[in-house]
Amino acid sequence: MSNELLLIINIIVLYSGVLIWYKLFGSSGLLCWTVFATIAANIEVLILVDAFGIEQTLGNIMFATTFIVTDILSETEGKQKAQKAVNIGILTSISFIVVTQLWLQYTPSVNDWAFPSIQVIFSNTPRLMLVSLVVYVIAQNFDVWAYHKIWEITNKMCSDKNKYLWLRNNGSTMLSQLLNTALFSFGAFWGKYPIDTLISIVLSSYIIFLITSLADTPIIYAARKINHSIKSK
């Protein structure tokens, strides 16, 4: 199976998973998804693949689902609940980093076979871990702020808070993903690659995020319908 087909399947599975968790467990399901996606994306990002003519790390789609979660919660539950998801993701990242680094401090048994692989996977440099965490905090908080700012502007324009869902969803996500891509690329790789290479990394990564952002629009509309059905019961 090609990498391109696997990525398409990955989008369908993960985006559908967000809706299923929301349908089954409501906002609590989305908060749990945030924990799952944060941990999984931190592991998956270590894998590098070639797809659609672009060399890319995995984890982009999984990470994109955390933005879907905050947009759904912003739309259906309000800014406070969306901010709660962001805070849960931040604490999950910190806990994950601390725990995995503690694992590496152990002296393995002579009969151990897993430690070398664990060491390779979780021995990220402190710079990458710190940059990843700081960028996550900035991008996620900006996403929540931008979503409600765009909502406020469109509501004043047409006096209908239900209109322009596509605009606040795509607008906030695309801006926050641009911020995320630029800050992480320059923060993690400044001094390691020349400026033209860094710009190339930012552009190629952002193209992927644009596609995943546009693909999540039907998911947001479906989530709003699910919310209406839940409240009508």
Rank of each mutant, 00 (worst) to 15 (best):
E75L: 08
S109L: 14
V98H: 03
A82D: 04
K161P: 03
D112F: 06
V69D: 08
M157A: 15
S93K: 02
F36D: 00
N60M: 12
F115A: 05
G89Q: 05
N42A: 03
Q119R: 07
I88S: 05
W151T: 15
V98N: 02
N124L: 14
E75W: 04
N111T: 10
V120P: 00
I61L: 08
I90M: 10
L165G: 07
V49L: 11
W151L: 15
R168F: 13
A51S: 10
N87K: 08
F67R: 05
I90H: 09
L165A: 04
I72P: 07
F115Q: 01
E75A: 13
F67A: 08
S95Y: 09
A85N: 01
D143L: 11
E152T: 13
Q140Y: 05
L104P: 02
K156W: 11
M157H: 13
D112R: 09
W151F: 15
F115C: 07
L165E: 00
N169M: 09
I121N: 02
S74A: 15
A85H: 03
L104D: 00
I94D: 00
A64W: 01
T76E: 07
T92Y: 11
T107A: 14
V45C: 02
K149E: 15
K163H: 13
I39Q: 03
I150E: 09
T66P: 06
D50E: 06
S93I: 00
C158L: 11
V99W: 06
V99F: 15
D160M: 06
W145V: 08
T154V: 14
F67I: 05
T92F: 06
G89K: 05
S117V: 02
W113R: 11
L133F: 10
G59L: 02
K156Y: 07
I94P: 00
T66D: 05
N42G: 11
W145Y: 14
E75P: 09
G171R: 11
D50P: 01
F142I: 05
N162P: 03
G59N: 01
I47P: 00
A114I: 08
N169G: 11
S93N: 09
N141I: 01
T66H: 09
D160P: 13
I150Q: 12
T65E: 01
Q119H: 12
A40M: 08
W145K: 07
T38P: 00
A82H: 07
L48S: 10
V137W: 11
D143N: 15
A82I: 02
N170S: 13
A139V: 02
P108M: 09
W113S: 10
I94K: 00
S95A: 14
K161Y: 14
S74V: 10
V35I: 13
Q101F: 10
F142V: 04
L91G: 11
S95G: 10
Q56P: 03
E152A: 15
K84W: 03
K156C: 11
E77L: 12
K161H: 11
W113E: 01
M157I: 10
Y147L: 09
A139L: 06
L46P: 00
W151V: 08
I150V: 11
L48H: 04
R127N: 08
N124C: 01
M129A: 13
N169L: 10
Y164A: 14
K161C: 12
A37R: 06
D71C: 09
W103A: 09
I138E: 00
I72W: 12
I138D: 01
I121H: 01
T57W: 02
S172Y: 12
P126K: 07
V120K: 12
F67Q: 04
Q105W: 12
